[in-house]
Simulated scan of single mutants.
Amino acid sequence: MIVNFGYVAMSEILSNASPSQTMTAQQFAKISNKDAGLKRLERIAIHNIENCLRLLKHNNAHDICFFRFSSRLIPLVNHPLTEGWKYERPLIPLLREVGEYVSSHNMRVGFHPDHFVVLNNSDDEILNRSLQTLLYHYKLLKAMNIDPTHRCVLHIGGKKEGKVQGLEAFIENFSNIPSSLSKMIILENDDTVYNLEDALYLGEKLGIPVVLDLHHHDVNYGECHLIELWPRIIKTWEGSPLPVKIHISSPKSSPEDKRHHDYINKDRLLQFLEMARGSSKSIDVMIEAKKKDKALFKLMEELKLEKGCEFISQATIQFNRT
């Protein structure tokens, strides 16, 4: 089984390479000329995207072909203060350059919009804001000339009216949103409300791939063991152009701690890989550790000492442990 490792959004090694620099709404409101304010936002966005390209080149130097983009590449998108801003137009050449780099180096990239993107809410205003955020991610991917299919990880949402009602509201709303946006979505189990069985209920019913978050499962599990659920997860990816994907992080202190550690507990990862061995030709593993690429490099050094981990590249292994 081939296992590719990636990390999230920012580097702990590269200096001055943040792809998430921003301007607050308060700062923007103080600029008397709106056009001048939008130009300043445009300059920030260009700087963020240039840094994103730097990160991709850093990743390529270390054979990392799996990466999550920051959702904050363009500040104050869809804010009432920037209403009518055609933010993508001046950025298309640079975004196209990013997409060409991704394609030419065969990288898998995607997004994980913030938790306020909620598709199971009955409030039309909240749902519309969520769809506008998804449209923003769609525009970024299209400008990069990257197929948006299954590039956005979402949580199921809240349970204001109860968990069962939340699941049914997701089904109703998902069925009514534009297919261009619904095709982007993959679902992840969360650490508090909707466990892996809930995500699979929706994934199987609606044809959405399910991303296993191993840490979330460990702190918020249902009635079934992971070994029973894993084949069902694999099956949700059968119609996807992308390989099966999981998220890993480690608790900061006790096993029940929902907070993320700086680094990854390799033993828990190896335990999962032993369970999953032979179930799929490849798995892409997104590291959600506080130390980002440092955590990835540390994990790779630790795996070099483990039997059954044959290194194909600096960030990809063939797992053969029996």
Rank of each mutant, 00 (worst) to 15 (best):
M1K: 03
I2G: 03
F5R: 02
S15D: 10
A17D: 01
S20K: 12
Q26T: 11
Q27L: 02
Q27I: 09
F28L: 12
I31L: 11
I31T: 10
N33H: 09
A36K: 15
L41Y: 06
A45C: 04
A45R: 09
H47D: 11
E50W: 07
L53Y: 07
L56C: 02
K57E: 15
K57I: 08
A61Q: 12
R68E: 00
F69Y: 14
S70R: 12
R72L: 14
L73F: 04
I74K: 13
L76F: 10
V77E: 05
P80E: 02
E83L: 11
Y87Q: 06
P90I: 07
L91C: 04
L91G: 06
L95K: 12
L95I: 11
E97P: 07
G99V: 00
Y101W: 09
V102K: 04
H105Q: 02
H105P: 01
N106I: 02
N106L: 03
M107T: 00
V109Y: 01
G110Q: 02
H112A: 07
V118K: 06
N121L: 05
N121A: 14
N121K: 13
S122A: 12
D124T: 11
I126R: 09
I126A: 04
N128L: 15
R129Y: 11
S130I: 03
L135T: 07
Y138F: 15
L140D: 06
L141R: 00
K142H: 12
I146M: 10
C152K: 06
G158R: 13
E161S: 13
K163D: 00
V164P: 05
Q165N: 15
L167G: 08
E168T: 09
F170L: 02
I171A: 14
S175C: 06
S175I: 05
N176Y: 13
S179R: 13
S180H: 13
L181G: 12
K183N: 15
K183L: 13
I186Y: 11
L187E: 00
E204Q: 14
K205G: 03
L206W: 07
I208S: 01
I208G: 00
D213W: 07
H216D: 04
E223Y: 14
C224R: 15
H225A: 13
L226A: 09
P231A: 07
K235Q: 10
W237P: 02
W237Y: 09
E238S: 09
E238K: 15
G239S: 15
P241K: 05
V244N: 06
S250I: 12
S250G: 08
S250D: 08
P251D: 00
P255N: 00
D257T: 05
K258W: 04
R259V: 04
H260T: 01
N265R: 08
L269Q: 08
Q271S: 15
F272P: 03
M275W: 09
G278R: 11
I283W: 01
I287Y: 10
A289G: 10
K292G: 06
A295D: 00
L296H: 09
F297D: 05
E302Y: 09
E302S: 11
S313P: 12
S313G: 13
A315F: 07
A315I: 04
Q318I: 14
T322L: 15
